[in-house]
Amino acid sequence: MTTELLPDPSMGIDDARARHDARADGFFRGLIGTAGIFVLLSLFGAAAAMLWGGREAFQTFGWHFFTSTDWDAVRHQFGALVPVVGTLITALIAMLIAVPVSFGIALFLTEVAPLWMRGSVATAVELLAGIPSIIYGMWGLFVFVPVMANTVNPWLTTHLGPLPFLGPLFRGPPLGIGMLTAGIVLAIMVIPFISSVMREVFLTVPSTLKESAYALGSTKWEVVWRIVLPYTRTAVIGGIFLGLGRALGETMAVTFVLGNAHKLTVSLLEPGNSIAATIANEFTEADSDIYLSSLVALGFLLFVVTFIVLAIAKLMLRQIERREGNV
């Protein structure tokens, strides 16, 4: 633009209009740019607000906060170890079940099922991924916990309890609630997520690659194991991490079935706790500043862990998006 800023009497109506448009464009850009920056800020704002809210706990307990199993509202002693371990164990159980099952579902829906079945089953799985987690929690509490208490837990205790190394994991009172139940409910919840990501990723494999393998006489399984999976490896891991992120941060599905017990046990059948469940159960009951601050500090921990997991997921999934863009 060479037009000067001062109004020029010889300026035609077009110039005025161009100037008006430029101003309006600048305003519009500024407005939506602000909204864009707001998205950035909301994530960092959330992190900062929780770090600030948890500062009292971090200051009071220091590194001890991460290693202590204390959780005593009366003596004002709080440590994050029990909920952190609980979160990790339930998420681990969930992933051990969900990953192979999701892989099977993705394989079935991309290679095995008859064509007419693929679309509808995939849609059904995706719809189920949208069911609120509180429904899973309620089902867990009213339907699944009795099954665990009456059938599964006693069976595990009698058959796996006497084993030398794994045994202690499966000894305990048949309450039904506990780490194992929470892990299974979480697995059921994340299966739709992981399997739909895997399915989409598998669909990106160029058919020329698969057909070449078939032409050399490969069986379907060999094509999946040696062509599809190596081709999509990073994205598959990304999908798994996405599910892990969900499992770590899930609140309602586990709060119902975990039992809210602040003690560290070897047994998976004993009640335990997780970060999200602790916050959900105790936040409104927190009667001292340090109690509240400890809960917010737990939230900050959860945030940091899920941020890392989701960032890894995102970076790994990005690779396949980029490749897809180039093909």
Partner: peptide
């Protein structure tokens, strides 16, 4: 922004509750 937004999309919802609480 896209990266941050994708993380917000899957971030635990309880974290957003704590944020707004604070």
């Amino acid at each position: 922004i896209r990266f941050v937004n994708d993380i917000l999309l899957s971030a635990p919802s309880i974290v957003m509750g704590l944020f707004v609480y604070a």
